[in-house]
Amino acid sequence: MIHIENVSKTFTLHNQGGSVIEVMQGATLSVAPGECVALTGNSGAGKSTLMRMIYGNYLAASGRIIIGDVDVAQAEPREILALRRETLGYVSQFLRVVPRVSTLDVVAEPLLSVGCDGEVARERARDLLSRLKIPETLWSLSPTTFSGGEQQRVNIAHGFAHTYPAILLDEPTASLDATNRSTVLSLIEEAKSRGAAIIGIFHDAQARDRVADREVDVSAFTPKRAA
């Protein structure tokens, strides 16, 4: 489902003397449907950078990032937008929403944008929010005022609302208590069992062991620093 071949990434800092920083080269990995791959490596090894390139948020310098039949490294913006809408889900560590939109609508939004019926979408949203133990009294409020843990769970509900064939997870269980952590891991397992290809970053080793089928150490793709 996800094929990454020989991807490299450089940052050129034009406003700091034009210095070019190579952060990744030769990144190659594949994820099959129903498989969960955990990215590992030290902080700064490039886990998030790789994740962002897969999502199209960072531009790959070279290589191919094939998701379904789209090469994210080459695609037009509208192809990436369609991919994000239909195929590729992303649960980031931080919630970014429009002020004033209710939690229920935030969670239902990915379904609405693929043309799902409004009531069906909200039903799914209610279901996810109650599973993730967001009190019903908060559903009509904007999540911008929620605590960190609540925001994280809203974020997860948002990411799992639509049944994406491919999902990227950036620290999905950070700052969650044991019960909620277990719920999130179940959600991941359910996604796997319906055939989603998942790439995740998990600092929590227990969580990683429970859901990940394989580990890929991103340090292998870190360019050797010139001595």
Binding site: N15, G56, L59
Partner: peptide, 15 residues
């Protein structure tokens, strides 16, 4: 893409 241009700007001026 908006988020790509803002998060990973390529051109001097955009940076």
């Amino acid at each position: 893409l908006t988020d790509q241009v803002l998060d990973d700007p390529q051109h001097t001026y955009t940076q």
